[in-house]
Amino acid sequence: LAGGILSAGAAEIAPDEVVFKDDIEVMDSLTGQPGDPANGREVFADRKLGNCLACHANSDMSELPFHGDVGPVIDGVASRYEPSQLRAIVVNSKNVFGPETIMPSFYRLENGARPMEEFQGKTILSAQQVEDVVAYLTTLSD
């Protein structure tokens, strides 16, 4: 966010200002606010938002059809990762898993070539949606 000292309420971290620790952790909330797990659950399932269910099966969503299996089953993910690691994965999966991963990076700007006009210069999820989905993931422990 160019050249401004922001008031606490608006302290949203811009995509290119997210600080990674050892490539695998993002310690601070992107919004300075805690995420809302109920909304994060929506983000996980919604095809126009995270569409995480396209690749990750999730027992907590057994009411929904068509869970994908391109990625690992998400059950118990909070027992495998710290919240800071989950945030890092969602923000920029490539930092964590390497450049070959198929998983999109949900909060970075330099994605693939030829983005459609309506998505140019935009992240897939907003900072708050990232926090919400991370908050939701932290509820999925074994």
Binding site: P104, N111, G112, A113, P115, M116, F119
Partner: peptide
């Protein structure tokens, strides 16, 4: 080549 916002 990876293309699009979803980068695939």
């Amino acid at each position: 080549t990876r293309v699009g916002q979803l980068d695939m």
